[in-house]
Amino acid sequence: MTAPDRLRPSWRARLLALPIGFALLLPGLTACGGPQRLSGGCGIVVDGSGSSRETTGFNADQQLRKDLDRFLLKAKCRNVVFAAITVNSAASTCSSEPIDLDPDEIGTTPREQVRASFRAATLIAAQSLLKCIYDDKRNDGGSDVLGGLARIARSHPDSAGDFNVLVVSDFMHTDPHVSLYRADLGTELKREKIIDGLVDRGQISDLSSIKLTTSGYGMLQGKDPAKFSQFDAFWRSVLKDHAGVPEPLTLQ
């Protein structure tokens, strides 16, 4: 049984426990009128790596609770896909099924109520994905942030125009070649040398289709303004200059 297979029963059980009855969303009945339909394609990336623990100062679950609903509303998300940041994000077996926040068939339930239900379901799905990552102790040894970004970029819904992505991570990328815990980011030359290595190894993907928002970015560096400035300069160079992420680039 794969990790996604283990994930799904809990996911469905928690959906049934939501206070707004999903049983009312009967197939075959389509509501008329109501608010303008949603159309945005969105991605949620959650960091369950070793740094994603409350004791480190970055709590991924807490950040999800704080920022996810606001992001979904602001981006007018309809189709939501998920990706995990793990020790090896590209090979991670943790996943979650896509969610349609504004389905065509909603029975007699008011559409805004349906959307609120599915936004709650999106939080549950992200938390379940986070739990799957936590349960695999191999993920304590690294944080493949770039791999998680690449994976969500490949998940861009074909029918979507803009692709708004929320990355819940401290962005402390750590792999066998680069650890931002130990890397010297003190000068532009040193930062570019590290980035050149990432480019040579094919670790920086084309992210030009993504409108990026973060939650928890640089949280572990925030107490030292000098270190945060170097960290921020590194990531802005990676994301803007090399991966092609367009402005506005919301790093927070």
Score class of each variant (00 low, 15 high):
Leu24Glu: 15
Thr122Asn: 06
Arg14Ser: 06
Trp235His: 04
His173Leu: 03
Pro98Thr: 05
Arg12Ile: 14
Ala116Arg: 11
Arg154Thr: 09
Asp135Cys: 05
Cys132Gln: 05
Asp224Trp: 04
Arg182Ala: 13
Val165Pro: 10
Ser229Trp: 01
Ile124Trp: 04
Ser208Glu: 10
Ala243Pro: 11
Leu64Gly: 01
Ala226Phe: 08
Asp104Ser: 12
Ser208Asp: 10
Lys223His: 15
Gln252Asp: 15
Cys132Asn: 03
Gly50Trp: 15
Leu166Ala: 05
Arg236Trp: 04
Lys193Gly: 13
Val87Asn: 06
Leu149Pro: 03
Ser96Asp: 08
Gly197Ile: 00
Pro157Thr: 00
Ala83Ser: 13
Val245Phe: 04
Thr122Leu: 02
Asp162Trp: 07
Ile44Arg: 02
Leu251Asn: 02
Val145Ser: 04
Arg14Ile: 08
Gln221Tyr: 04
Arg12Gln: 15
Pro103Thr: 06
Ala120Gly: 04
Pro248Leu: 15
Leu101Trp: 05
Pro19Ile: 14
Arg111Phe: 08
Phe234Pro: 01
Gly41Leu: 04
Ile44Ala: 02
Gly186Lys: 02
Ala91Lys: 15
Ala160Tyr: 04
Leu129Tyr: 01
Pro225Gln: 00
Ala84His: 06
Leu146Met: 10
Arg65Pro: 00
Ser95Val: 07
Gly141Trp: 08
Cys132Trp: 07
Leu180Asp: 01
Thr174Lys: 15
Asp135Leu: 13
